[in-house]
Amino acid sequence: MTAAPPTAPLPTAPAPEAAVAALQSVELAYGTVRALRGIDLEVHRGEAVGLIGPDGAGKTSTLRILAGLQRPTAGEARLFQLPIWPNRRRLQRRLGYLAQRFALYGDLTVEENIRFFALLLGVANWRLRAEALLERVGLLPFRHRLADQLSGGMKQKLALVCSLLHSPEILLLDEPTAGVDPVTRREFWRLLADLLAEGLTLLVATPYLDEAERCTRVLLLHSGRVLADAPPRRLRSLLPGSIVEISGSPRQTLRAALATLPQLQDVQPFAAGYHARTTDPTPDLEAISRALTAAGVTVHTCKPVPASLEDTFLALTATPRRAPQGDP
């Protein structure tokens, strides 16, 4: 996206309404591992909130607490104004949760899986809703197929349908489209858009930053803390410095030369060239060009480009290269 205008205050959820989900200084420890170190979060009706962050940042733990599957070690977690853990049974009827590894029964058909989850969730009139949802994601013609014989994308769609059978008011999705192709992903989000229009609230953890762009607000988690909380376009503007696109030949010389320029923080391959981050918001492009030319590079392009969400993500969560990292 090019030169986006500054975000005007857009009408989202009506402000006075109480939060659908609220976490206050929530901590979670597994033994000595502190998965969450004080998470604050407020989600309002109709919002689509994305959770991004490196592996082990606390995305899944946050969702599990909201789903009433995990009791916070400290802090307050509420859903529809009710403390989650003591009310989890009741609340689970009002929320949908799609785990990273959702268990469908491979030896049951699409329809049998749905019937099973309808029974489990205590949904009485599931047939009509199931049919509408299956139609919406294009699975209706496959309702008699065994779940094992569905492609990865179709399985995810079926899992989504199962998590929506009881018409939840809030839907928690944990990396729902990992390994799913762009077309299927688009269909997935198309259905979510309809549900959002009907007032569903959505929380989605995703490693795909282009997917996070579909959210109204994005939380960047890192080491169990909230590092940033902003709409995607504002999050991009949090990038320290700016991004410069550089291409030239020979590529190997360019690559080597870029690594030696002190003003470039972070050099990433991008199409025929590179994207580099400078700490200077108005970098001296001439100087960069000159330095590259002096190193024997024929410079083709050296221009500022808008930061992507990924650029910002990587800059904000930057870990020193080659430093030992804790296993998640």
Partner: peptide, 28 residues
């Protein structure tokens, strides 16, 4: 890029407008 209130609802409207080849929701 379209800015409007309730964009998720606007998506359903826009998809039915002649000449709209593709429409997708991107947050707000």
């Amino acid at each position: 890029e379209i800015h409007c209130e309730q964009p998720a609802r606007a998506l359903g409207v826009l998809e039915r407008v002649e000449g709209v080849m593709d429409a997708a929701l991107f947050g707000e």
